[in-house]
């Protein structure tokens, strides 16, 4: 498969309650690399192995949650095409000027049916991963500082009309359905996992009474051992852990759900499987949803369905 159109998750912009405390957490506990601060007070981070300038941006606000989630598209022509396709589909868009986010080109921003803001952009300055593009080393010191995920990988968002989201992501942005959980009626989707690549998910949605909510932003680790190391670092730093280390049945990733100092849920995970466009979607029934979400506990915890920011 040639990878075209929407390439991958590009950045998450997340609201925090106390900026200094959050900078310390994301730098020293998460082990992200700070790459800049702008005049609006936003602080920019990337994971050590990411090459673009930023993938995670925090801004101080009166409430926690997600401001926007963005995807990088392959070319500027793709950006123009998605903009006109979105408008033709009936989804209004707005342009955010290049440079509004540091080192990031023009963004096309739109609201999806669950009320979240999604952005597309084609350009972001390549700052590299700290190693040469010629005869590089395998890793560098930043790969061992704090939890040190390799990339910002996906997010899970909560809102009402996840069917509308699925239709828009499939029909306009070219995503595919990888897994889904059915409600008790056997037909309504409680949750859907969508991909734009060969990953098991690039974005996921859970049906929820309130729109615009964040369940988690997820960061990739290389191995189960690194997931366990992350859990040790969380305890050393008294980080609020939701659940884990454990495994998801859905996508098969090994995982920890935990919270940043403002209560935004994060995930560090490894594994999962690779998906190709000829793969049939996996369906989980309501009766087995516990095993789907948490493969070892085999039961939902209250917090999975009700604690969001």
């Amino acid at each position: 498969m040639a990878m075209t159109g929407v390439l991958r998750p590009g950045h998450a912009i997340v609201r925090v309650l106390d900026l200094e405390e959050s900078i310390d957490f994301y730098t020293n506990v998460m082990g992200l690399v700070e790459t800049g601060r702008d005049k609006l007070g936003r602080v920019y981070f990337k994971c050590w192995d990411e090459r673009d300038h930023n993938s995670f941006v925090i801004q101080q606000a009166p409430s926690a949650g997600i401001e926007a989630f963005a995807f990088k598209v392959r070319t500027k022509a793709d950006l123009e095409k998605f903009d006109s396709d979105l408008r033709a589909y009936g989804c209004p868009t707005e342009r955010v000027a290049a440079g509004d986010l540091l080192e990031t080109g023009e963004r096309v921003r739109f609201k999806i049916p669950t009320g979240h803001l999604i952005e597309l952009y084609a350009e972001k300055k390549e700052v590299g991963n700290g190693m040469s593009n010629v005869n590089p080393e395998a890793w560098c010191a930043a790969a061992e500082k704090g939890i040190a995920p390799t990339r910002m990988d996906h997010c899970l968002l909560y809102g009402g009309d996840i069917d509308g989201n699925q239709k828009l992501f499939k029909e306009v942005l070219g995503f595919d359905l990888v897994e889904r959980v059915k409600l008790e009626d056997g037909t309504t989707d409680l949750a859907i996992w969508l991909t734009t690549s060969i990953k098991a998910h690039d974005i996921a949605f859970v049906r929820h009474a309130e729109d615009g909510k964040l369940h988690h932003v997820s960061f990739l680790l290389d191995s189960w051992e690194k997931v366990l190391r992350a859990a040790d670092i969380m305890s050393m730093n008294r980080v609020s852990i939701d659940i884990g280390p454990t495994r998801h049945g859905i996508t098969r990733g090994t995982t920890i759900y935990f919270f940043d100092p403002s209560g935004n849920r994060l995930e560090t995970f490894s594994g999962g499987y690779q998906w190709y466009p000829d793969t049939e979607p996996v369906t989980w029934t309501w009766e087995e949803v516990g095993r789907g979400i948490f493969y070892h506990d085999r039961k939902l915890n209250d917090r999975f369905l009700s604690v969001v920011t």
Partner: peptide
């Protein structure tokens, strides 16, 4: 209220 935000469609008791 722990369940204040739980999806209305899924409001049947979740076994936990």
């Amino acid at each position: 209220k722990m369940k204040k935000n739980v999806c209305k469609v899924a409001e049947q008791p979740v076994e936990v």
